[in-house]
């Protein structure tokens, strides 16, 4: 007798919990070759709103944690992700239409990327901060601080390595994130949220909303309680005008991380390239302190 399939309907990841979409909607996720994979929750603007509330609530604790502690937590995420390697390989292979070997390389690169950013957490201040020379009896110190709540439009194509590469630099410096996953390939993001929930990442630090990018991106970009937005995921997203999103983001002077452009059109960056510090630098603010020199 053949066994019945366990067909899955996934949910969102908001505030450390896995709620259904407030709208009650879900959509079918199909593989690169068109086969049914699972149902994913179709997040709405109100789910994004709830995610922002959760991210704002988590900010004080996460940004107040020591950089050393954040590094340990990110390393733990890498450990747990590697522990579920087989599941990720399967999902990446199905979602992106890769061979098992190629998908394995993607998962390994994602683990390595997390470890790389884990190592950076307590070195950001040394590299981006400075003791400035001033003409007076003062210490003049510039130090990077997290920008706050960051909205992230995750890449549409690279559903795991791309996702990890945009989320890790945001949270490494102490920001909290509201992530809109790849619309057509959300399953690695869903499993990644299960990884986050079972590592030591406090609830609300990363919130993942599976949604149609065009539907929720405007709300995220216009949200007054979001301090920065990463527009990487507009590349390949249907019906999304990134310039309009940037204009919405200007409503509260958000930091905007623009998508990679080729001939004026957004394209997905090469995720295997050396990430550099650009994404960390984009989501920190420099605070400069003058302190009188004693004798």
């Amino acid at each position: 007798m053949s066994r019945l399939d366990v067909r899955k309907t996934y949910k969102l990841y908001i505030g450390g919990a896995f709620p259904r979409s407030e709208s009650g909607r879900s959509y079918e996720v199909v593989s690169a070759s068109g086969e049914f994979l699972a149902n994913a929750a179709m997040g709405s603007r109100k789910d994004v709103r709830d995610a922002v509330v959760a991210a704002r609530g988590a900010l004080a604790k996460w940004s107040g944690a020591t950089a050393y502690n954040r590094g340990q937590v990110l390393y733990r995420v890498a450990e747990v992700l590697e522990g579920r390697r087989a599941q990720f390989v399967e999902e990446v292979a199905a979602s992106e239409g890769l061979s098992v070997r190629a998908a394995g390389a993607v998962v390994d690169a994602a683990v390595d990327r997390l470890v790389w950013y884990a190592g950076w957490t307590d070195k950001i201040a040394q590299v981006l901060g400075n003791l400035n020379p001033v003409a007076g009896p003062f210490f003049n110190v510039s130090a990077p601080e997290p920008t706050g709540v960051v909205g992230v439009l995750a890449p549409q194509g690279s559903s795991l390595l791309g996702l990890v590469s945009v989320v890790a630099p945001v949270i490494a410096s102490g920001n909290t994130a509201v992530v809109v996953s790849s619309a057509a390939r959300p399953l690695p993001a869903v499993t990644f949220s299960e990884v986050l929930a079972t590592s030591d990442v406090p609830g609300g630090v990363v919130n993942i909303v599976t949604a149609q990018t065009a539907e929720v991106a405007t709300w995220l970009a216009a949200h007054r309680d979001v301090n920065a937005i990463d527009l990487t995921g507009v590349a390949g997203a249907e019906g999304v005008d990134w310039a309009a999103l940037e204009a919405e983001a200007a409503g509260n002077l958000k930091r905007v991380y623009r998508p990679t452009l080729a001939d004026g059109a957004p394209v997905e960056p090469d995720w295997n390239a050396d990430p550099g510090l650009g994404r960390i630098r984009a989501f920190v603010e420099t605070k400069t302190v003058w302190h009188p020199k004693g004798l």
Partner: peptide
Amino acid sequence: RQKLATGAYSGADY
């Protein structure tokens, strides 16, 4: 009230 007036979600900074 601000959300209804501006059409964008507001935040505690306001």
